[in-house]
Design a protein around this nucleic acid. Structure first.
Lengths: 110, 110
DNA sequence: TTGACATACATAGCTTTACAATGTATAGTG
DNA sequence: CACTATACATTGTAAAGCTATGTATGTCAA
């Protein structure tokens, strides 16, 4: 299981990145991340929905109620302009941090 | 300034990595990270020392009081066996997360 | 037809905890 | 001798993450 700090730090950029490919909904996001990570990252719905609500409050994403093929209702989220900006910033920050770690790990003292 | 979640997630692996190069002390760690990140990451001592203490409690690192060249006392930290193990684990976790982000970012929908 | 499981979203509230603020002390320097 | 840099330490509280819990519907096998 991943350290919770790492999950906390990566959730927003992952959501933003996933939505940059097109609109999606909570349950699907959970499964996409699980799949992309080879089952290593397993978000719970209880942690994801509050994050989505917060990001919507921030004006990064917007939601609409829609229908699945089977008639079941779903809340679809789409990236807004500020969300794109946030994604860009968060990506830069990740680049900074991974840059430092890469330097340290390249040395292979471990 | 970096998002605090990202700082939280990267502090421990950075400390562990820095100490894997040889023993060091708090103040020096702050400056090394600042330097490696091109001044982008600026740890405060108020956040670092508690982290060092916690990591020592975990048995990842050990400390000894030593003297600087000028006679001033310093607390030097060194990596312990469990610390190496922790570093390995955290590194794997980072690889997982950055792996997912890389996949998403490679697509360049942004 | 019913029970089990998957799908789908929501939130209250309780820990946990991060770290800002603050304190102490010494070395160097102009 | 005053100011800055070096060096370590701890408390207290404000914030927040997420567990636990709740609701509801679709699917499918037995």
């Amino acid at each position: 299981m991943l350290a919770k700090e790492l999950v906390a730090a990566s959730t927003e950029p992952m959501i933003l990145s996933l939505l940059s490919r097109g609109e999606s909904y909570g349950y699907a996001l959970i499964q996409e991340v699980k799949q992309l990570s080879g089952d290593k990252i397993e978000w719970t719905d209880g942690m994801l929905y509050p994050v989505l609500h917060r990001m919507e409050r921030e004006g990064w994403i917007e939601s609409r109620w829609g229908q699945a093929e089977n008639g079941r209702k779903r809340k679809y989220y789409a990236l807004k302009k500020d969300g794109k900006k946030a994604l860009k910033e968060q990506r830069e920050q990740w680049t900074t941090v991974t840059g430092v770690l890469k330097q340290l790990w390249r040395e292979e003292y471990v």
